[in-house]
Amino acid sequence: MEYEKENSIVEMMQMQFPEAAFKVKKERRIEVRLPSARLYDFAVRMQKKWNFLHLSAISCVDWIDDGEFELVYHFWNYDEKVLVMAKIRIPREEEGDSHFETISNLWQPAKFFERDIHEMFGVYFDGSEDMERFILTDWNGPPPMRKDFITREFALNFYHYRDYEPQWLKDMMAAGEGNE
């Protein structure tokens, strides 16, 4: 049978979390959608009972049309060799930070990813020891990875570019070709 190992893992997890939606995407990849209140229990069980000891990354996706942030947690199991992507959605605030709970007391690598998501997207992880700015220490603008921040406009307005007007470019633009 195809994907035997992945399907047996899904069955084991579905018994504990009946409200979650599981899907086997391809070999060694399982995707699960959870309600955001159940993530902490899921993470505890992953680490303590099901032996998924490696947190590979935490990613954040800004779905501006839905008004939500999606947080994706990637867990890897060294013995079974399977990756589980746990996806949750939290509401997106226009001004100020959205809030969610931290898992950095379970996994130390989560501290870096949560700090990164905080300064890039504006999601505050409650209970974390350290939410200081890390990479953008002199930045005064909005969180730059949000979809309403257009980096091209910002760069064109804020920085000085060198003037470069050679004759061939002037001829081209007079003929109506080229852009910018």
Binding site: F134, I135, L136, T137, P144, M145, F149, T151
Partner: peptide
């Protein structure tokens, strides 16, 4: 952060 270029954006 000394080498930040904003690749993902």
């Amino acid at each position: 952060g000394y080498l930040h270029r904003g690749f993902e954006k």
